[in-house]
Design a protein around this nucleic acid. Structure first.
Length: 272
DNA sequence: AGTACGCCCTGGCCGC
DNA sequence: TGCGGCCAGGGCGTAC
């Protein structure tokens, strides 16, 4: 499941390969992919012949800036962006829903088993506003005070961390891992957190996301980088999908509960 | 407005 | 060995 670190790894893999390059051929074969805006044919026609000026990330979204418009890609649960050149790289299969070919060689495939992901065009200047993306947790603007402001209302802190319109890019894995590192129980009401707890959570969020990027992401099921390689961060997960196993800090069994329909993992001793 | 929940989708796993 | 049924969950639409 690609969250901020996984999407950032893919972006960094792709920047030297696609920036400045012109799209010479487009094939979009899955209508669901463009469901938010336009048909596959319309999106394909709009992409053709355009140069990728920049490849940006905001939260879990990627923006291929083409000038007036940007191609927005959201990977959902099982989406992959795979780069191939010549005979090396990906082999298209029944889950490959789009392929962009670039002038001078190189192809970018969009592959997505469960089809939760999307690909569509938005005007570059208003794209971020349209998508209502919250604050970027690795930017300077994400201060303890900004997190404190987001911690209003009666919702549980984990539910808030998953709200992309508040804080962008945190998904189920990094929410659980950040809360463990901050020593905060996922079921706590966000507004009940004290100043010290907010500061700890702020630090934990940044550290866990940076560690995720450094270890090239968490490959729980289908995540692969742009070259088809898995990430290594799973080995460093402390609670996510470790239920029943001893907590790495205190030895108590890690617990798993359901919170907002999502599997939620925490240590009942270390997290209060 | 703020919160809760069902739905989309497919592969993998479980039990019989 | 085969197969039905359930589970994983990001984000959106709908309901309260």
């Amino acid at each position: 499941m690609p969250e901020l670190p996984e999407v950032e790894v893919i972006r960094r893999d792709l920047v030297p390969r696609v920036e400045g390059r012109r799209i010479s051929m487009v094939s979009i074969t899955e209508p669901r992919l463009t469901r938010r805006r336009g048909t596959p044919a319309e999106v394909a026609a709009a992409l053709l012949g355009h140069r990728v000026r920049a490849l940006r990330r905001r939260g879990k979204y990627l923006f291929f800036d083409l000038g007036e418009e940007s191609l927005v890609v959201r990977l959902g649960m099982t989406g992959q962006l795979l780069w191939g050149e010549g005979r090396s790289g990906f082999l298209p299969d029944e889950h490959t829903h789009a392929i962009l070919s670039f002038e001078g060689g190189g192809r970018l495939a969009y592959r997505d088993i469960r089809k939760f992901g999307e690909m569509f065009l938005l005007p570059t200047v208003s794209a971020e506003r349209t998508l209502r993306i919250g604050i970027e947790p690795l930017d300077r603007g994400f201060t303890p005070e900004a997190l404190q402001r987001a911690c209003s209302g009666t919702r549980r802190i984990k539910t808030l961390l998953l709200d992309q319109s508040r804080i962008a890019g945190i998904g189920n894995i990094y929410a659980d891992e950040a809360l463990f590192r901050a020593g905060i129980r996922p079921t706590r009401r966000a507004s009940s957190l004290g100043h010290q707890e907010v500061r700890r959570l702020h630090t934990a969020i940044r550290r866990v996301l940076q560690a995720g990027i450094r270890h090239r992401g968490s490959s729980i099921s289908d995540y692969r980088d742009a070259c088809g390689r898995p990430g290594r961060f799973v080995a460093l997960h402390r609670v996510y999908q470790r239920h029943g196993k001893p907590c790495l800090a205190c030895g108590a069994p890690v617990r798993r509960i359901l919170l907002g329909q999502r599997g939620t993992h925490y240590c009942p001793t270390c997290q209060r």
